[in-house]
Design a protein around this nucleic acid. Structure first.
Lengths: 333, 333
DNA sequence: GAATTCATTGTAATCGATTACATTTTGAAT
DNA sequence: ATTCAAAATGTAATCGATTACAATGAATTC
């Protein structure tokens, strides 16, 4: 292995000078620089990043904790994160929690052990206090989710108002008996989207039927299962608001397999606008989150935190958008 | 920051002893161990991984280079990799190349700089020789793709025979005029799947119409575009073999938008069996790759390489499976 | 009781780059 | 030619854990 001393020897300078050349400090004479560069080239020298990291105590790595990497919403956020990261000289360490709180907390140690300079959480299942504590000591940004009263910088859409918007869309179409497949109650996301749904219903004076509020876990399967329960009710809902697209698609599959049609018999609205939402048939009416941009903004904030720059604010709310496609329609009954 | 010397001082031992306790060397007396553990606990000490890495010159990190993280096939492979990695004490550094060769080669430096102990490539767009050279110096495993005559360990299915199987399925159904949407010709994957297709046609004595072989880039959009070209032909094909599911779904969308039906008018077969293949309508006939297992096997091999264990063989071919669903049907014309 | 072995612990070198501080060189000013 | 500041370079400490080697002490053997 070629070390900095080897380069120094070859170029007939000290290691300090070589290091200066590498880091472009600008204090090295032109011909010395050239000599060093030539030596680096001829030895095919690559600085040992570990040594640099130890000395500078920085890793140029950030940890991204994702609940489900196979969900294209998250993978798009991740892509936004990664591309800004690379351009800023950072690498991305991946943590896929499989929606498991224990696994999630395991990843927190990576920060404590200084294996990453900061962390972006795309999920927050573990105890809020634990995250708060970590965030006091290390740079942390939460994306997608948002915790009230927290000091941790956040990038997300306004989930409550988006969910309200989605529900209002259905109400405006004349639906009254609306079922909702929520996200897990132990996630803020799940709770917020339910809250928005409830607000819309309340504002239009529609009483809430607790049978029509069922918890899902953001998976296709859970959407399917919950919908089957709805369909088994004496009076099934005429419309469904699902807290994400995967569950919405699951619900539609369940509806279809009962011989019913979407949107003719039951309207369905999803959330996220994953890649597949527009491809699926019927194309899904959904709330479009600016996934890529959420990722970009999150990493920008994180890098500012790492550099101890001031943030102008703590909570960045990006614009969402209701995209009306084929899966929702006027209520006929 | 708490250092090992702080713990040593508090427990009244040397740093060596603390280190021994941490690494479970088993040579430390019971009550000393307890004393050290207590000190670690009370100081809330976490070893600085950077220092350990430098000293041991290992990072316990592996780099995974993916062509497209939003493709659920790759994210499932990635998930397989990550779960085995975590269980073996490794972390995953993510490299999303966006199908760009330049970006891909940028990631290779991570290995050279010792920021990862090894690498798994889920793509290989860069010059084969470059990869070969890297693989001579560092542990590298290629998954999904496979290069003939290479020394680099590989995990994949037999793409040629799988593609042949898919094409034969269509031929057996009576199709003769079969179009294929290939992967990019600069990827082995694209070439291998085309080769399988050609073999099947040749074996059944069906002459190849070069108009019916069109290059795609594995994206939904390219599937759509190529299909439109096929449909504009004087005699369009009665069946399509697409080199991955995303393109197959794109093709089906194009077919439907012309007012034609799948499989009644045109049969379509895909490749990969992504999450969405069974959900889409018509459910996609496709080749199922054991994505999760490919990931697991790849990381197992890589860890063996890192530990300089012997591999019993260099190329692991996993079982694929033709899954016949709704998108393919007997040829009527 | 001396010699030997083994278990336990300590001392200090080491990984390789960075950088504070020290020293030398350069060039301008007088 | 001398002085002095600025520029360029060098020396050596440093980051924090690991580990080769050394040292100590206890147990065992003869």
């Amino acid at each position: 292995m070629v070390r900095i001393v080897d380069v120094a020897k070859k170029a007939n300078v000290s290691t300090a000078t070589v290091s200066r050349v590498i880091s472009n400090s600008g204090t090295v004479k032109k011909d010395t620089t050239e000599r060093v560069l030539k030596a680096i080239e001829s030895l095919n020298y690559q600085p040992n990043i570990l040594a640099r990291q130890l000395r500078r105590s920085e890793t140029k790595t950030i940890l991204v904790v994702v609940p489900d990497i196979t969900n294209t919403f998250f993978s798009k956020v991740l892509r936004g994160i990664e591309s800004v990261a690379i351009d800023s000289g950072y690498q991305v360490l991946l943590g896929d929690t499989l929606n498991d709180a224990e696994r999630e907390s395991g990843y927190l140690n990576i920060l404590r052990q200084k294996k990453a300079d900061g962390m972006i959480l795309l999920t927050a299942k573990v105890d809020g206090q634990v995250v708060e504590d970590i965030a006091k000591q290390y740079p942390v940004v939460i994306a997608c989710e948002y915790t009230e009263g927290s000091e941790i910088p956040t990038v997300s859409i306004d989930n409550v108002s988006s969910a309200r918007k989605a529900a209002e869309h259905l109400i405006t179409l004349g639906h009254r008996r609306i079922g909702t497949i929520t996200g897990p109650f132990d996630s803020v996301l799940g709770r917020d989207r339910l809250k928005g749904f409830q607000q819309a219903m309340a504002q239009h004076g529609i009483p809430l039927d607790s049978l029509l509020v069922q918890e899902g876990d953001f998976s296709f399967e859970s959407g399917c299962n919950v919908m089957q329960k709805f369909l088994a009710l004496g009076v099934p809902p005429t419309a469904i608001f699902a807290a994400n697209d995967e569950m919405a698609i699951g619900a539609i599959k369940a509806i279809k397999s009962k011989g019913l049609k979407v949107p003719e018999d039951i309207s369905v609205v999803g959330f996220d606008n994953i890649k597949f939402a527009s491809i699926f048939e019927p194309a899904l009416t959904t709330i479009a989150q600016p996934s890529y941009e959420i990722g970009q903004k999150a990493i920008e904030l994180l890098i500012k935190l790492i550099n101890k720059d001031e943030l102008d604010k703590n909570q960045y709310i990006l614009e969402d958008k209701l995209i009306v496609r084929e899966s929702s329609k006027k209520c006929l009954s």
